[in-house]
Design a protein around this nucleic acid. Structure first.
Lengths: 202, 202
DNA sequence: GTCTATATTAAGATAGAC
DNA sequence: GTCTATCTTAATATAGAC
């Protein structure tokens, strides 16, 4: 399962239970409130610890944020890689990936929100986090582009610069993630089929 | 011109030069750094005033933010209304609107970032701003939906729930706005034609 | 009108108690 | 291991000077 992939990544890089606990909850809170809007107290409360205790595991808020951006950036790349390795035509695999992204409460989406959305308001986040994000953001694109090219060769996907198509794809996904997070009504939410129309050869 | 429409809205609701100055620069800074990430000092410096002077015109950071969300929400609705009133087929008008949104440095996009993106990280922004945003966010949709329906009747636009199509449209635009704001390379940015493929009847 | 100086509050970070 | 209390810093907001 895709979600498992992310969690694995987290567990791998977090030796003890408490660190994992903090990281997991910090991801969730940062993703909702942003870097500046998140108080250490919020993370601690969410993880079930006192405010001061967090500093036993991390030396600053910046350090927590930077760590999470690193993990989330890797997770985003891995999710696309996972989809790319599935069976089926290129378009089938992209469809699967899109469904994973758009499913409500998707951890993959949470990761994207953290990375892309936050580096959009980039001036208020730590330099180190920006650097890592900028460096790792290429990975999902590098995973998706060969898939798009495969689909173009199979005449499933529209002609044109694969990078341009990949940018359009992730932008769309990103925008839908924001829309979903504010969803007042769950009905009327765009289907995978509609979303992928711009990619499909007609 | 579309940009002028927004500026008009701002001038209308800002009696004196200093207030306008603060509002204009605050929009820009909030849009880049988010509510929590923006310090009064940043706004003041950007507008060319000292930190304390801002409090001659606004009683708190919340008040500035709330005012801007109100103006920007109205501006977003007006931009769609303006496009809807143009000459041409429904699809031509939507194309025009899309170009206005996607043009680099678009004030319309800046407004969207402020409203949608910030209410996405909604827990860290003032309640009053959330209320206004939620209330006004309907307007752009209400302006676009009749245009979509017109395009469907003229067989220019794909069949399906117009609200779903409108949500997809604004999500896509929103995502592209974020992508553009981080654009490392200006080339490879999706064209209007590609973006609107998902809407076009094939 | 505009700035500088200052009071106040909130948040980050540390250190010592249980 | 975990919390409470505390120090320190930074940001909001005010008030008084030019």
């Amino acid at each position: 399962m895709l979600e498992q992939r992310f969690i694995d990544g987290f567990e791998q890089l977090a030796p003890d239970q408490a660190t994992r606990q903090i990281i997991t909850h910090a991801l969730e809170v940062f993703s909702r409130k942003g870097f500046a809007g998140t108080k250490i107290k919020d993370i601690a409360a969410s993880a079930g610890f006192s405010q001061g205790y967090v500093y036993m595991y991390f030396k600053s808020k910046e350090e927590i944020f930077t760590k999470i951006v690193e993990l989330a950036s890797e997770g985003a790349g891995r999710s696309v890689q996972y989809a790319a390795e599935l069976e089926g035509t290129a378009m089938e695999r992209i469809t699967w990936l899109t469904e994973a992204f758009l499913s409500p409460g998707s951890l993959a989406m949470q990761h994207w929100r953290l990375i892309l959305l936050q580096t959009a308001t980039s001036e208020a986040i730590p330099e180190e986090a920006k650097r890592i994000s900028k460096e790792k953001i290429r990975e999902p694109f590098e995973q998706l582009i060969p898939l798009i090219m495969e689909g173009q060769r199979a005449l499933e996907i529209v002609d044109g610069d694969p990078l341009e198509l990949a940018i359009a794809y992730f932008s769309f996904i990103q925008g839908l993630g924001i829309a979903r997070s504010q969803a007042t009504e769950q009905n009327s939410f765009p289907t995978t089929e509609l979303v992928l129309r711009f990619l499909k050869r007609s």
